[in-house]
Design a protein around this nucleic acid. Structure first.
Length: 102
DNA sequence: CATGTGACTTCTT
DNA sequence: TAAGAAGCCACAT
């Protein structure tokens, strides 16, 4: 099993991800900053990779700072377009216009 | 134990 | 604005 990461950290991350409104996207760094771990963006990505194991979360609304989608995840593009998020190109979303702001 | 890679960011040249 | 370096965490070799 996987229990390497702190359950508290996972809860915090998933809580924030769950708060992302429909039609908006957030970056790993932004999430990391919200939970007080600005430099731990990598952990956010790792947690999201196994987020489905913990439950159903809108992890498709999370992209990197450049708006690039998750490599090797073809569904993400369709999921975002279905929410009204425009694509910059094949693998990048128009994060400049759809980034989640508090 | 050392190195390198990965759903990453930010600061500095 | 683009490119390089540093920072940080978990995991594979």
């Amino acid at each position: 099993m996987n229990r390497v990461l702190d359950d508290a950290l996972i809860y915090e991350i998933l809580s924030v991800v769950e708060e992302i409104p429909e039609g908006k996207v957030a970056t790993y760094g932004q999430i990391a900053r919200l939970i007080g771990r600005e430099r731990n963006a990598r952990l956010v990505g790792r947690v999201l990779s196994m987020a489905e194991f913990y439950g159903s979360y809108p992890c498709h609304r999370v992209v990197n700072h450049a708006g690039r989608l998750v490599p090797g995840w073809s569904e993400q593009k369709q999921l975002l377009e279905a929410e009204g998020v425009s694509m910059k190109n094949m693998d990048h979303v128009d994060i400049k216009s759809y980034q989640w702001h508090l």
